[in-house]
Amino acid sequence: MQIGVPKEIKNLEFRVGLSPSSVRALTEQGHQVLVEADAGVGAGFSNANYQQAGATIVAAAEAWQQAMVVKVKEPLPKEYDYLQKEQLLFTYLHLAASRELTEALMHSGATAIAYETVEKNHQRPLLTPMSMIAGRLSVQFGARFLEKQQGGRGILLGGIPGVTPGHVVVLGGGIVGTEATKMAVGLGARVTLIDINLDRLNQLEELFGSRVQLLYSNSANIDMAVSQADLLIGAVLVPGRRPPTLVSRSQVQQMPDGAVIVDVAVDQGGCIETVRSTSHSEPVYVESGVLHYGVPNMPGAVPRTATEALNNSTLPYVLKLANLGLGALDTDAALAEGLNVVSHQLVHPAVQATFPDLA
């Protein structure tokens, strides 16, 4: 199969769909890989690295014209014209956050498989590595923007002996929330984690013990915790759908001036009412005296780590698709769960629920 790897064009997105080692694995099995010039430079992979792995370096249009296109992020409007009938697109899509992209994919006739909806044993193996990175970065970025020079409260999350540490509130106890909590605890912050799943709260108690305050998710607990937060992290995932709004505008207004919100769920629409998408070049804005960080492609800040971590998970599926085409969906139930759009039809149930008129 011929496989195209375009350069990502999202703001300051330096990840790349295939690393040179993944290209080598594909070419060794007889596949042809065409990589857009400089697609991997931001992640530390030169054109020569790809050529040594067996790839051909091409222009953007040629990378998009292949039978399968492997990316990291969803196509942006200027890329919609590249979408074509019988093309297989394998990337993160997050269609629930974009009706425009959903309609463009349906109109094109392309087959779109989304990393984030591939499901195996009730886990999402292609979302996990980026969720881990985003969770860890959420605290790293939160700590940065709490600095006074960045517009924050001037709080050191870990404090020092004799000075109260900062308070981190995490909404959601999944992978993102767990990784954020690990980072915050490691820095010495006071941490409150809120989740609606009692079984998960019990698991987290075994992991963190008394170092983390674990609360059941209800409006009273959220209201209390948010009003005291120096750093509020949204870590809610409802696969294929927009997450519920857990924090209202009025609750944000109760937060201290200079507090920071990092909503990792922004790529699906966000779980905090006042959050909107930002970018790596302009990551924050202030509303109600609170700094809001809403970058939807957070792992793009560490492209080398993120590309290698993502490829560790995606390569087995890329190889199956390259070897079997869409027949891979018949042999791999997890991969079949990733199918979002095919033959001009929206087929993923969760996305259908978001856009019922398109189903």
Rank of each mutant, 00 (worst) to 15 (best):
I175E: 02
G162Q: 12
V170M: 04
E147V: 03
S217V: 02
V176G: 05
H167W: 00
I175D: 01
L156H: 05
Y216V: 15
G154N: 03
N197E: 15
V212H: 01
V185G: 03
R153D: 02
G186S: 07
V163P: 02
E179S: 13
S210I: 09
I155N: 00
Q203W: 06
R200V: 12
I160R: 11
A184D: 09
F208M: 08
N197L: 14
V170E: 02
G173S: 08
G188P: 13
N202A: 14
T178H: 14
S219L: 12
G162N: 13
Q213A: 14
V170K: 01
G174S: 09
E179R: 11
G158L: 03
E179P: 08
E205Q: 15
L157G: 05
I175L: 06
Y216A: 15
G186P: 10
H167E: 10
L207G: 06
G162K: 09
D195E: 13
G151H: 01
I196C: 06
I175C: 04
T164N: 08
I196M: 09
E147S: 07
Q213Y: 05
E179D: 12
E179L: 10
G172L: 05
G159I: 05
K148I: 05
S210K: 13
L193I: 07
V168L: 07
G188C: 08
L215A: 09
P165V: 03
G188A: 05
L193K: 01
V169M: 06
S217C: 14
H167L: 04
V212G: 02
G177E: 03
G209I: 11
R144K: 13
S217R: 11
V191K: 01
R190C: 08
V185K: 06
N221K: 03
G151S: 02
G152K: 01
G162D: 12
G172T: 01
L157V: 08
L201W: 10
I175R: 01
D199C: 07
G209V: 12
G151F: 01
A189F: 04
A220H: 14
D199P: 04
G158A: 07
R200P: 12
G173K: 04
L157H: 07
G177H: 06
T178F: 14
